[in-house]
């Protein structure tokens, strides 16, 4: 057994353990902690596959930043220990849960089958295979030469997201005369129109 295999088994098991614990936790904050564990072990898996950049993104953005946001959302909404999470689920929503997870499972089966047992599903037909595909260098080289324009567009997308977040979440500043009068004259009308349908 090589060391690579040992590391793979350890991190794969940790990822599954983290994911399971995340689901079975009663306390949402603890769930988030287990999710971080799962994401970090997944990052190790990606790195073993040679997708170093994705691994780094997973740790820096997902485990680092997005889960902080999750924590804030949980605390902001003041979710307590969710004992009766299932109490409001109707048969339809249960069916939907099974359908969606079943579809995901089928998709996984298909991918595994396609990559190991069946060679008819071909990928990347038009592009030559690069040896270090997925490494930080090769990603960077593409990103800063061929995909230069999308790269700069990304920063504009981030900028719009910044502006949007500030507009939605920030209280109006003092010199802003906006929003002293509530603009809700047609709220009732809106509700009645929806009730009519």
């Amino acid at each position: 057994m090589t060391l690579d295999l040992v590391i793979f088994i350890i991190s794969a098991l940790t990822a599954i353990f983290g994911a399971l614990m995340m689901i079975f936790q009663r306390n949402p904050v603890a769930s988030v902690m287990y999710m971080i564990l799962s994401l970090v072990s997944q990052a190790v898996l990606y790195m073993q596959l040679g997708a170093l950049f994705i691994g780094a993104v997973l740790i820096i953005v997902y485990a680092g930043a997005i889960l902080v946001l999750f924590l804030f959302v949980i605390m902001m909404l003041n979710l307590r220990q969710t004992e009766d999470m299932d109490s409001d689920s109707t048969p339809i929503s249960k069916l939907a849960k099974f359908l969606v997870s079943g579809l995901l499972f089928l998709e996984m089966l298909f991918v595994v089958r396609g990559s190991y047992f069946q060679s008819s599903v071909e990928t990347g037909l038009l592009s030559p295979q690069i040896d270090d595909f997925g490494s930080v260098e090769s990603v960077a080289e593409l990103l800063f030469t061929t995909y230069l324009y999308p790269f700069e567009l990304t920063s504009i997308l981030l900028l719009t997201a910044i502006v949007g977040a500030v507009v939605i979440a920030r209280k109006p500043s003092n010199e802003d005369p906006v929003e002293i009068l509530p603009f809700d004259s047609d709220d009732d009308e809106f509700k009645s129109a929806k009730a009519a349908e």
Binding site: V61, V68, L158, I162, A165, A169
Partner: peptide, 16 residues
């Protein structure tokens, strides 16, 4: 939450 969102956005900048 606002600070967290702004942090994420600048964090994505770091990833580039």
């Amino acid at each position: 939450y606002m600070v967290a969102i702004l942090f994420i956005l600048f964090d994505i900048e770091v990833i580039f």
